[in-house]
Design a binder for these strands. Structure first.
Lengths: 143, 143
DNA sequence: GTTAGTGCAAACCTTTTGCACCAGG
DNA sequence: CCTGGTGCAAAAGGTTTGCACTAAC
């Protein structure tokens, strides 16, 4: 069966993008990644894996997917990185050492609302970024 | 009296940077800004105000001040922006419309610690970023 | 066949760097 | 003097764009 392929196809359709070969390959590559990827790295991966893609296609696809809300965007060392995102309210914990991003769902839904109210903000995007060092990296640094 | 000048001088010395004319001017310009400024904008401001400065000096000064912890760094539309920062634990609320950044001190010190613990992170930098729309912008958008 | 997608190369923009000059102690 | 700061111009990324070609319905 071709469920993986079908799934990316469905995702693209749901986003209102025609499911072309390149787009599916980009989405599949993203699907395998635990942490945000830069356009160039993705380009190299797809090219080496025997799928020639133009840089512009990579950029255009990533931009389109992000605009549709399928990807989260992170900036790391002056380079934009993208990662598949879960829907719904959650926070992002970003490791500044290895770049890992953990999506954490907080049970205490009221916290963000309270902060926003106190600061006179509409915190419409719950994708709050918390920066630090992930557990594995922290333990590696201590040793 | 020249207290303003003295103050930037003191800030620079405290940061371990010799208080040159250019650096003081950069710091003073930042002091007048409620929201993060990009290097180019700062360059234009200083130049128009009759103080010729090289772009490289602006960049080098901003980088140095940020490295010393005197400035917070934000990325907006692919351009790095800098703002004088308060010391101590606080969150940043960033308006995606006007770029305003509000520093909010939360009384509930435990929240961040709890999130970090649950996600196995060391949230060493309390300068968490919350994105949204500030009150004035939100009201402007509704009208 | 018509419309959307793609590749290439050039352009763009922000930021960094090399090097000669300058300033301040 | 001598060291660090500065300016200029060039280079270095990363990203976008114009245009001709291709592919999919």
């Amino acid at each position: 069966m071709t469920s993986a392929l079908d799934e990316t196809t469905a995702q693209l359709r749901a986003a209102g993008l025609s499911p072309t070969r390149r787009r599916r390959l980009v989405l599949e590559a993203l699907d395998r990644r635990p942490r945000p990827v830069g356009a160039h790295e993705l380009y190299v991966e797809l090219t080496q894996q025997g799928t020639p893609v133009g840089m512009s296609t990579v950029y255009r696809t990533l931009t389109a997917l992000a605009a549709k809300g399928l990807l989260h965007v992170f900036v790391r060392d002056g380079e934009t990185h993208y990662r598949l995102c879960a829907a719904g309210r959650h926070y992002h914990l970003v490791c500044r050492r290895c770049g890992l991003v953990v999506e954490h769902v907080d049970e205490d839904e009221g916290w963000l609302k309270r902060i926003a109210r106190e600061a006179d903000f509409e915190a419409d995007s719950p994708e709050t970024e918390i920066h630090g060092v992930c557990g594995p990296c922290h333990r590696a640094l201590k040793s």
